[in-house]
Design a binder for these strands. Sequence first.
DNA 1: ACAAAAGTGTTCCCGTTACACCCATGA
DNA 2: TCATGGGTGTAACGGGAACACTTTTGT
Lengths: 190, 190
Amino acid sequence: MDPGRGEWSLYGGFVEENESLDDAANRVLYQLTGLKDIYMKQVGAFGAIDRDPGERVISIAYCALINVKDYDKSLLEEHKVEWVNLDDMPKLYSDHNDMVKKAITLLRRRISSEPLSFNLLPDLFTLTQLQNVYEAILGENIDKRNFRKRIKTIEYIEKTDYIDKITSKRGAALYHFNKEAYMEDPIFKL
Amino acid sequence: MDPGRGEWSLYGGFVEENESLDDAANRVLYQLTGLKDIYMKQVGAFGAIDRDPGERVISIAYCALINVKDYDKSLLEEHKVEWVNLDDMPKLYSDHNDMVKKAITLLRRRISSEPLSFNLLPDLFTLTQLQNVYEAILGENIDKRNFRKRIKTIEYIEKTDYIDKITSKRGAALYHFNKEAYMEDPIFKL
DNA sequence: ACAAAAGTGTTCCCGTTACACCCATGA
DNA sequence: TCATGGGTGTAACGGGAACACTTTTGT
């Protein structure tokens, strides 16, 4: 998000002649963060007549799942862009708040039919980290025992022999998302 | 749907300067069917570079729920448009099959979180009619007793004293969707 | 020793499913 | 009288939610 015209707004760009909408979204994301191959979905087209006071603009909003640790800070500063917590989100320019709202709805719906979380986690992750992602997306707390019970029934989330000793004294088992197993049998359980 | 360029395609139109995307969709629908105030949702923006062989076109697809009985036949004939059954749908022009597929997915997801069916039914309807709509949208059969049990738990679907004697010899109770009750307490159960 | 995070089972409840027969009426 | 669609209840099952204590180890 970047400051624009006195108000904050979402970061955007224009679609070039030689690129699809998806390509354009990926390019803009790359220019902004230096990230490629990121999970990204179209949120929708926004086309009220007066949504831009200057000229008629139709915007196609996209949302991406980005691990906040991964971004290139210098690029963000260069574009005068900042990450904000959802709870701290200010009033945005034009209909950009609607875009965010629709994106959140889309994500919350999708997380129960598609394993989104792994786009936000490192290759190896602890169950606590995974649960944190779920709680962040759903915006609510989940019971630890129930969560871990459900995870156990999902075949393509595999426990490894590695142990994470960084975030806890006792050490936590590291898990792995087996994408191949998911592709073969894409039944999502959570 | 109308025949175009040797293949069948979805019916479309261009967005005017003085109308929003939603307005444009409603206008096109009106020109085609003579219907107004129809339930309509944006399906998404389609923007592959070569989706139209002539020039670069970005399309925003919409889907509407229309009771097939309501349409103005002369308008359809005038525009050389036909209704087709989903099962009989031919290969369509460009990415139009993707549009239909996405629209169906959207409807199926939405019907379990929003009472869509009433847009396809007359003001008074029998439970069998309602069940038919559900089965049509979901594309599967539903057990009659279970269906009726669930309907009974929904406050805003109200039984009236009227009886439909047209479609059955015995006569079937007519029900009514109480929109006000739904608006007050929009918890959808089915 | 104690603080901090990891890990672990059981019970209860409710919603979903499966399933088959009688009823009223017009033709 | 029969064909047609309308209407009804119960039992078994399974998934989700609630709930609290022990373990390990670094400091």
